[in-house]
Amino acid sequence: MMTKKVAYIGCLGLIGIITTEFGVIGILPQIAAYYQLTIAQAGVLLSAFALVIALTGPLMTLLFSGFDRKKIMLAAISVFLITGIVSSFAPPFWLLLTVRILPAFLQPVYISTAIAAAVASGDKKHEHQLMGIVLGGIAVAMVTTVPLATYLAGWFNWRASFMVQTGVSALAFLGIWKALPLMPVAGKKSYGSQLMILKQPAFLLSTAMNFFMIAAWFSTYSYFADYLGKVKHMDEKMISYMLFLFGITGVVSNWISGKMLSKSIPKTTAVFLLGTILIPFALQYSGTNIWVTIGIIAVWGFFYAPCFLNASAYMISAAPHALEFANSLATSFGNLGVSVGTMVSGWIIVSNGVEFSPWVGLCFGILSLSMIGLRSLIEKHC
């Protein structure tokens, strides 16, 4: 019983974190207009957040690896709560960017700690399902809080989105504080033993796969609202509905992926990666037919949602004895992918238009699939 409890509380906290990180996606056009910026400049709110995670995540996770897991989770959520409060007052852009960056230092610490706590409380055979519950917070946020934040921003203004983020973080803080026991870490592993995984070719290829995969998805998803508005001619309310649909199919696929990973991690990862190649063609040839576009968005959400779960499982499978550190690297390089995918796509958008962003994702997707192939070849010859 405790196993599921720890996993679901970890999931609740992740909903708060993802609402903060990705809640800006649906309101980037409004923020750009308010601060008189280009959409690519406003996109820094997402890419800078992700870049901080990429650069500091593993180090922060190593530093906090010996602390009580409940206290770490509470500290991380507290920073996200403060960020939401300050952002909802529409401060100057430099301050908005600053408070957006601060919680990024603790995001990978929270995720790796929550996953480690959930996995430690259960059987080895249920490891991927427990990870799926925690990381399911990403899909749940996509179907609930992220579209809600966009919907309310359409009714009121973009600050309402940050108010939603504040409320979710507050609920997550209370949930962790009230429902979880203290969870001290027994037998902390040395830094050296954890760093050894960086010498393993299979793990390095898994890291590259993670980076390219997340970059592929976020090349387009970061500009979801702008793409649907300018290319598919949808208004803000319709875009919020599309985010909702995107999340619904994502919840289903996250559950399916958790089951599939128990049978074959490489095949599951590759199957969902195929979406990075299929979706650009589907979006290109759907034109402005609203019903066809809705169907494509549903399929898009299905392929996209398990990307973080698949990335973590794929990387951990190459380093099973350093779970927390491997998870932090998965989070960091995944967020480096968010940052690079967002920036590269932003440059393409500025010079060629937002309609080209899915093709950027296709290029990254091909690179990611090639990393899976290379790792399989190396493991066959070992």
Score class of each variant (00 low, 15 high):
376 S>N: 15
129 Q>A: 12
63 L>W: 13
95 L>R: 12
381 H>C: 06
285 Y>H: 00
33 A>H: 06
62 L>T: 09
140 V>D: 01
218 F>M: 15
137 G>Q: 03
309 L>D: 08
199 K>F: 14
26 G>I: 14
258 G>H: 07
265 I>A: 14
71 K>Q: 15
303 F>H: 01
54 A>C: 08
4 K>W: 13
343 M>Y: 10
225 A>H: 03
366 I>N: 12
150 T>R: 09
66 G>K: 15
19 T>A: 04
341 G>N: 01
84 G>P: 02
249 T>F: 12
6 V>L: 09
145 T>G: 01
356 F>S: 10
180 L>P: 04
371 M>H: 06
287 G>I: 04
302 F>Q: 05
79 V>K: 07
87 S>T: 12
172 A>C: 00
251 V>Y: 03
297 I>W: 02
70 K>M: 00
6 V>H: 14
369 L>G: 15
138 I>C: 12
354 V>I: 15
349 I>V: 09
162 F>N: 02
77 I>Y: 04
264 S>W: 10
2 M>W: 07
43 G>V: 02
185 V>D: 06
204 L>A: 06
263 K>T: 08
179 A>P: 08
242 M>K: 00
63 L>A: 12
77 I>M: 11
9 I>D: 00
303 F>K: 06
238 M>A: 08
368 S>P: 06
307 C>T: 15
130 L>E: 02
299 V>S: 09
343 M>E: 14
163 M>D: 06
315 M>R: 08
71 K>C: 13
346 G>L: 05
234 M>T: 07
344 V>D: 07
228 L>G: 09
23 G>I: 00
32 A>L: 10
352 N>W: 15
322 A>F: 04
287 G>R: 09
202 A>C: 09
205 L>H: 13
234 M>G: 01
121 S>M: 10
113 T>S: 15
326 A>T: 05
328 S>L: 00
187 G>C: 10
361 G>L: 09
145 T>Y: 02
226 D>E: 15
135 L>S: 13
215 A>T: 12
216 A>H: 02
264 S>V: 11
113 T>H: 05
54 A>M: 06
27 I>K: 04
198 L>W: 10
288 T>E: 13
176 I>Q: 05
89 F>C: 12
157 N>W: 05
310 N>C: 15
300 W>A: 01
246 F>S: 09
42 A>F: 01
135 L>Q: 14
170 A>T: 03
59 L>F: 14
207 T>N: 14
178 K>F: 15
235 D>V: 07
278 L>N: 05
364 F>V: 05
204 L>K: 11
36 Q>E: 13
137 G>M: 06
309 L>K: 14
176 I>W: 00
157 N>D: 13
222 S>V: 12
184 P>G: 09
12 L>Y: 00
361 G>T: 05
278 L>Y: 01
229 G>D: 11
269 T>E: 10
355 E>V: 11
338 V>T: 00
227 Y>A: 00
323 L>S: 05
359 W>Y: 14
305 A>I: 01
80 F>Q: 02
218 F>T: 01
110 Y>Q: 03
118 A>E: 02
13 G>P: 03
303 F>E: 00
308 F>Y: 14
44 V>M: 11
92 P>S: 07
121 S>D: 11
245 L>C: 09
73 M>A: 04
117 A>I: 01
59 L>M: 13
162 F>P: 03
254 N>M: 08
177 W>N: 02
237 K>D: 07
345 S>Y: 14
276 T>I: 10
122 G>N: 14
136 G>P: 13
119 V>Q: 03
323 L>D: 07
173 F>H: 11
247 G>Q: 00
